[in-house]
């Protein structure tokens, strides 16, 4: 199912909103970089900063499921052996 609006209409109505969100992202990355000129990021923060970089690459891709890919990027991996680790047995 798709809505009746075409791509032109969606771009027109969402352009300013997305532009504003991208500016927020850009300004935030600039802010981090300025702060890092005097003090490097701790390991945990650097890991999150790296994730944001990976996320921007997903945005630039042509994949049809960028939102899902971003969610996966920000998720812990599923470990199928979790039952064994907890000492559980499946019924």
């Amino acid at each position: 199912m798709t809505n009746e609006r075409n791509g032109d209409a969606i771009v027109a109505e969402s352009f300013l909103d997305v532009r504003a969100k991208l500016l927020e992202v850009a300004a935030t990355l600039d802010r981090i970089d300025r702060a890092c000129q005097s003090e490097t990021l701790q390991e945990a923060a650097q890991s999150k900063r790296d994730l944001l970089g990976e996320a921007t690459k997903i945005l630039l891709s042509d994949a049809p499921n960028r939102a899902e890919q971003l969610q996966q990027l920000f998720s812990r991996e599923y470990d199928a052996d979790w039952r064994e680790q907890f000492g559980f047995t499946a019924n």
Partner: peptide, 14 residues
């Protein structure tokens, strides 16, 4: 929530 959602949802479905 957040980074725990995917693994937790899969565990719940299991």
């Amino acid at each position: 929530h957040l980074e725990d959602k995917y693994q937790g949802t899969r565990m719940i479905l299991d």
